[in-house]
Every structure is written in structure tokens, then in C-alpha cells.
Simulated assay, not measured.
Amino acid sequence: MPTVLVADDTASIRFLIRTNLELEGYDVLEAVDGVDCVERLAALHEAGTLPDVVTVDVMMPRQDGVVTAAQIRADRRYDGVKLVMVSTQNLAADIKRGYDAGVDAYVTKPFDPDEFIATVARVLAGDPGATDA
């Protein structure tokens, strides 16, 4: 099954996402913020593996999710990694910022776990129509 790296500063959200993904058979890794996410990706790359998908919260300490997504997209080592932004920010301008940073899908909190899983699956399948859950 695919591997997902979940970057969120809220432990309960990481737990919710991890639990639902694992119930569907995904392998799940965690990062506590944007800096940790980028560091985890670099370490995984060095080990010869990468997650298939990274979910990234927008509002995190040290480095927000928009900057993190843009940083991941700018690094050619991560070209095959899909990005799903997860945020409470649901204004059109917020969503546009996420897509401008290079995410493949934008999910607003609170989200239905089944719809979230379906969004991750669509992104993995390369569905360009994968949008908000």
C-alpha cells in the first residue's frame, strides 16, 4: 500500500488522519510541522524511499503549510510526491494559495474521514479533478 506523510502540529488531527489511513491499509509517517516535514522527506530520500503522498496543514509553527508545499514542489527530488493540503482556511483566496503552492488537492477541516480517504485515493490515481473533501 502507499505511504503517506502527515504533517500537522495538532496531535489529535495527526491521530485522526493516521487512524483512518491505516484502516484503509496505508502506511503512515508523521511530522509535527513544516520544518519537520521537509527534514523527514530529506531523510527518507537519503534512505532511498519517499512517501507517495504528503498531507500538510496550513497553520503550523516554524513553517506554514503553504511555504512547505512550495518548498517540496521546488525540489526535483520530490517530483513524484503528491500533496494534499488540509486546513480550516476555506476562503477561495486560501484555497488558491494552496494550489498556487503546488498542492494536488485541498481539504477543509472539519472533514469527513471517508471523503478525506477518497481524496487521497483520487490524488494517488492521478485524478486532476481531486478537490475539496
Rank of each mutant, 00 (worst) to 15 (best):
V123Q: 00
D114W: 11
R73P: 01
A133T: 08
V123M: 03
T131N: 11
V54T: 05
Y78H: 01
A105N: 07
P110K: 01
D57P: 04
M59F: 10
I95L: 07
D132R: 08
Q71D: 07
L124S: 01
V38S: 02
D52F: 04
Q71M: 10
F116S: 00
A121H: 08
I72D: 12
E24I: 08
C37T: 13
A118N: 09
L44K: 00
Y26H: 13
P128C: 08
G25P: 10
V86L: 11
I72M: 09
E39R: 14
A31M: 04
M59W: 13
I17R: 08
D33N: 15
V120Y: 02
D52N: 13
L91T: 12
R76P: 11
E46F: 02
P51A: 04
R40E: 13
D79I: 10
P128F: 10
V66E: 09
V53Q: 04
Q63I: 06
V107I: 06
A92K: 14
V103L: 03
V58R: 13
A93E: 14
I17S: 11
M59Q: 14
G80F: 06
D112A: 00
V120I: 15
T131V: 14
D36C: 00
I117C: 12
M85V: 06
A118R: 12
T49C: 06
A42E: 14
E24L: 01
R62V: 13
I117G: 00
V86M: 12
D57G: 02
V103Q: 03
G98C: 10
D33V: 11
I117M: 08
R77H: 05
E22L: 07
L50N: 03
D64S: 07
D36W: 03
A105S: 15
L83G: 05
A70C: 04
T68L: 08
V32D: 11
L124K: 07
L23F: 15
V86T: 07
G129W: 01
V35E: 07
H45K: 12
I95A: 05
L50R: 08
G80K: 06
P110C: 09
V81C: 06
G65T: 06
G126N: 01
